[in-house]
Design a binder for these strands. Sequence first.
RNA 1: CGGGGUGUAGUUCAUCGGUAGAACGCUCGGUUUGGGACCGAGAAGCACUGGGUUCAAUUCCCGGCACCCCGACCA
Length: 477
Amino acid sequence: MAHFDKKQIVKKSENPDRWYTDVILRSEMADYSPVKGCMIIRPYGYALWENIQGYLDKKLKDLGVKNAYFPLFIPMHFLQKEKEHVKGFSPQLAVVTIGGGEELAEPLAVRPTSETIMYDTYAKWIQSYRDLPLLINLWNNVVRWEKRTYLFMRTTEFLWQEGHTAHATFEEADAFAKTIMDTYKRFDEEELAIPVLTGRKSESEKFPGAKITYTLEALMPDGKALQMGTSHNLGDNFAKAFDIQYLDKTGKRQYVWQTSWAETTRVIGALILSHGDDGGLIFPPNIAPTQVVIIPVSHSDAAVSKCDSLKMELEATGIRVEIDDREEKTVGWKFNEWELKGVPLRIEVGERELGSKELTVVRRDTGGKRSVQLSAFSVQLKKLLNEIQKNLFEKMKKFSEENTHEVTNYDEFKNIMNNKKGFIRAFWCGDPKCELSIKGETKATTRVLPLDAKEEKGKCIYCSNDAKHRWYFAQAY
RNA sequence: CGGGGUGUAGUUCAUCGGUAGAACGCUCGGUUUGGGACCGAGAAGCACUGGGUUCAAUUCCCGGCACCCCGACCA
């Protein structure tokens, strides 16, 4: 304990922004890059991303989605085909004007998202109703020239998956967009242990070019809401802009109905913010790069071989294990290091354990120590990992519920935004002017309207005109 | 793109009108290892950049650039 403050990171409660950056850099998740606003994802951070990819990739393939790749460069005039789309993205574009030492006849945008370049091709691929539905996903990087960046949350370049589908009917497209939203919800809640609100976005908050944007919103510990992912019903907007038509069974030409949807490396930021504490990261076991770390306290042959056999036993049941047998670091140093890295469980193996029939296992989330019998060891560890997974989710669920307020007058609204923030449920008339005024006065924007929200009779929190729905408001990240 | 701040060793910072110092980290040797060990020896710097002022600038002044913080834009 005497040396504990030596290289301590800032306390999360004292300075959350600084804590967030400190933890990411010190845990070796990511590093700053020589290019402004860009981020280097280090092996430990990338391993987490690979776990995210692994889960989502499988779920998407189960839905019949196939992976493909489309080019990084997009001819400028493609982006201009859909009016709202170009308006939404042009302020954030990076544009290549020189290639091979010569000025290009037409500048190329570095993709901010791939709708336009894909749909130009979709128009060629889709001829008949037999070509539908077309379900394609890309794992790639995109560039949006953000003025202000923040590791994982908002970087100039980021990694994501973007799915793009085309369907014969509006209903089918809408159902698919919702299915994706549900898939994301399961992922966020069951894997990342982050509870989310789902529903649709207001007109002003929806994706440029979309008819309906479905969203997943999570409440972060500082009371601000983070968009964890979106799934858009694009209607026939892009179909008309890119002339994507098919012949139906009766021989009639029809426009397709489309969806696009994405989840990004931003969810890693949400993961860090949601579960971490003063000791550093805390990863939910389902997604953690390493689930169990074994630390030999002694370097005797007996202890080392005990560690090895433990590792083999656990790995055989699918648990991700690492042994930290570096001799140049002391035991205490390693404890702190692996706590910083958020590994859910730690096992210590020294002379004391060699003759014992049980081992001490330490939980990262609660700090609790427990003796675990060596018989059926891996089964019990799996149980513990599940408990941690559940505990992290329940904790965030409770936080989210405790910080969701139902409000009927604007003073109350402002009061909450001035203090703890969080989600506010309140009637809104649907007029973008009220939305904008509320944002200007409180920083809160409409985040989401749940799909199952019943129509009610109420008065807009801002203008007192008739309102049908209670929306969720919050300050956005 | 507005307002503020900072640029000195790998990192965090100190210094000061006379060409630089600490801590941590790193390397080597030794002793250690059950909650961030200790001793000793090292390596490591065109003081962001360009221009002034001055006998002399890392230090003072101005411009540029970069980064950080705070606002507007955003996954």
